[in-house]
Simulated assay, not measured.
Amino acid sequence: MNIPKLKHTENNNFFLMAGSCAIESRDLAFEIAEKIKGITDQFGIPYIFKGSYRKANRTKLDSFTGIGDITALEILQEIGNHYDLPTVTDIHESQEAEMAAKYVDVLQIPAFLCRQTDLLAAAARTGKAVNIKKGQFMAGVSMKFAVEKILHENPSAQVFLTDRGNSFGYGDLVVDYRNIPEMQAHGVPVVMDCTHSLQRPNQTSGVTGGQPKMIETIAKAAIAVGADGIFIETHPNPAIAKSDGANMLPLDKLEELLEKLVRVRQAVV
């Protein structure tokens, strides 16, 4: 698969990681992939389809975790083959790396696991690209150690770093845009997660909240600062999404947002 490389794409555009939070069904995954591919082809935006095959970090015991590991991974593989797209999914434990790598092109390390040496090493050994989300508790400068762990195991590995905000009290996040150039200084592309950075975790209801109306603000600022990529979770109807619906972008609003971001990118490069 053609995975975006360091810093610049062919037309000097940003790249996009996007999809629903979790793989809920084959039909929904294909609907989202087809819609986004059409938009990104129109704007010349390199696209990586995102979907979690399993949700391990859930607030409540009875929260949705997935439709079955292999079932979801096979859907990711099918989407990648059908649309000729690279795909990305999360892994949570070292033994998952080899399994997931058989089906996807990029292994993603969740933010709260970004310091887990064994997990990073296992991802690196698969030979797949690795996207490490910066912990909500970490500064961008400290992420150099996560990059070093990957490159120690696989010096030729392709690594991305993704910012998703920093904890602000117990139930909110803030984005410090200094983290983008600070993480780029580690020699890797940096992605802004425009949806998870707007989460409002630890709600007393047991369901994570969010501020989806601010997605455009976060995304525009990230592109203006020079982010190499944008990460967005999207769904045709976030209100019925089985995971993270409170901070997802409605799928029908994605085209307008990406058109604006392309114009911002053209203005700042």
Rank of each mutant, 00 (worst) to 15 (best):
R58H: 08
N81S: 15
S94P: 10
P86A: 09
T59H: 12
Q95W: 04
L73Y: 05
V106D: 02
V104P: 01
L85Q: 03
A97H: 00
V88H: 08
A100L: 02
L73G: 06
Y103M: 04
D69L: 11
Y103D: 03
Y83F: 15
I91K: 00
I79E: 06
I67A: 07
A101V: 03
A72P: 07
H82L: 14
A100R: 01
Q77P: 05
H92I: 04
T89Q: 07
F64G: 14
T87D: 06
L73C: 06
T89G: 01
G68E: 10
H82K: 15
G68F: 08
T59G: 06
E74W: 07
T59C: 11
T71A: 13
E78I: 10
H82I: 12
L73V: 10
T87C: 05
A97Y: 00
T65S: 15
T87K: 01
T59Q: 13
Y103L: 03
P86S: 12
Y103A: 06
G66F: 06
D62P: 04
I75T: 15
L73S: 05
A101N: 02
I67Q: 08
I79P: 09
H92P: 03
I70E: 04
T59I: 14
H82V: 13
L61K: 12
S63M: 09
D62Q: 12
E93P: 01
I70C: 00
